[in-house]
Computed example of a mutant assay.
Amino acid sequence: MNKMEQKHTPGPWYVNDFSGYHNLYDKPDYNANNLLDEDQCARAPHNAKLAAAAPELLDALQELIEVATEYYKMVFDRDVPADHYAISNALEAIKKATE
């Protein structure tokens, strides 16, 4: 499957707490660039759109895992293996977003 052209800043992204101010950064330290500030990041508008879509993307990913798991069981008459790359990657992304 081909990935669509990505206009946002590639990951990883970090949530840093600098004096009680949470934001998205490109590094986990004080030399980081704020990924939502156009003065620090040319791709800030695209990053903001991705961040705004995150709740819907999370919901869609959770639904997709449910459907894929049910489909796998229906076709193969067994549960999805715990190490299935796509499912395990999706579950890790959900865990990162919800911890």
Rank of each mutant, 00 (worst) to 15 (best):
A90M: 07
G20W: 11
K3G: 02
E92T: 09
E66P: 00
V80Y: 00
Y30D: 14
V15Q: 12
L35H: 04
D17A: 13
W13D: 04
P55H: 06
E99H: 11
L64P: 07
H46W: 12
T69H: 07
L91A: 08
D39C: 13
P81A: 08
M74Q: 13
A51G: 01
R43N: 10
D39M: 13
H84E: 14
K96P: 00
L35P: 07
K49N: 09
A42V: 06
F18I: 06
N34C: 07
E99F: 09
R43C: 03
A93W: 12
N31Q: 14
P45R: 06
S19V: 01
A51L: 13
N23Q: 11
L36W: 09
L50F: 07
H46L: 00
E70R: 13
L58A: 04
E56W: 06
A93M: 12
P45L: 06
D17M: 03
A42T: 12
L57T: 05
K73F: 00
S88A: 03
N33S: 15
L36I: 03
G11F: 08
D79R: 08
E63V: 01
E5V: 13
Q40K: 13
W13S: 03
H22P: 00
L24T: 02
L64S: 15
Q62A: 04
V67L: 14
L57V: 04
D59C: 06
V75F: 10
A32C: 08
P10M: 01
A32H: 11
A82K: 15
I87S: 10
A44C: 12
V80F: 05
K27A: 07
F18M: 14
A97R: 04
A82R: 14
M4P: 00
C41K: 13
T69Q: 05
K95F: 09
Q62R: 14
T9R: 10
E38V: 15
L58W: 00
Y21E: 14
V15I: 15
D79A: 14
D79H: 09
N34G: 03
P28K: 15
A54S: 13
V75D: 10
H84I: 01
A82E: 15
H84D: 15
P12Y: 00
A93K: 06
H8N: 12
A54K: 10
Y21K: 15
V67K: 14
Q62H: 05
E56K: 09
E38K: 15
E63P: 01
M74Y: 11
M1I: 06
W13R: 01
E38M: 14
P28E: 15
I87T: 12
L58C: 06
A32I: 01
M1T: 08
A82I: 04
N47Q: 05
D37M: 08
D59S: 13
H22E: 07
